[in-house]
Design a protein around this nucleic acid. Sequence first.
DNA 1: CATGTTGCTACAGATAATGTAGCGTGATGC
DNA 2: GCATCACGCTACATTATCTGTAGCAACATG
Lengths: 113, 113
Amino acid sequence: MPKPAAVTKKNAVRGSRTGRPVMALLDLLGRRWTLRIVWELRDGPLTSRALRTACDDASPTVMQARLSELREAGLVELLPSDGYRLTPLGRELMESFLPLHHFAERWSKRIAS
Amino acid sequence: MPKPAAVTKKNAVRGSRTGRPVMALLDLLGRRWTLRIVWELRDGPLTSRALRTACDDASPTVMQARLSELREAGLVELLPSDGYRLTPLGRELMESFLPLHHFAERWSKRIAS
DNA sequence: CATGTTGCTACAGATAATGTAGCGTGATGC
DNA sequence: GCATCACGCTACATTATCTGTAGCAACATG
């Protein structure tokens, strides 16, 4: 076994070459709009255009790029007639993000410098 | 009160204008290297150069930009002679990230498609 | 068949990151 | 004193990435 494989594909995220899953995730989520997309899908499926609107009208170019990456990562799927939805794995990601959501509340109260 | 204020400054993060703290956090963490920096500081302070090395030799330009943003956000501080360190608030952020770290482990085992 | 919405793409212009070099400052060695 | 050396940080040209607008093909509705 030369490599742990797993997160190594053609469009692999940066940092995946280290073999440390957290690096791959860190990189995937560090791209613009990625976290936001997952967050906006928390309440159910959205069409690509509704998603774009929800994401402060991000450009369709990068939106499609992120959606492709998220689909390839198994976190998001495209339904035949409801738009995009979190996969069970994507839902796990969203739930793992909740502590950060709660942190943001505390954080916003201490920024007032 | 026209705005909840808090996270609105000159270099305010994108999304902060919504007044929703999670959007400001989502935007801050969505910038390249930001999450990675917080992650690399989890075990103690690092000098700016050690931090750059730890972060896959990111360019000093963007590194300093991120460090400035993180300092302004109250998540990171510069010690007189030990380099950069997470503030207590930054440590909270890092700990809030841990579920995502654990998720990454599960995730990496299901990517193998 | 005209209209509307879907997912998705092209392309030019703007923005952000990279890579290399180097500055000023302070500590250390001789 | 004076040459290193590492520190935080910056300049700047090149490259990568994102934006904004327009529009495509496919499908549905009236």
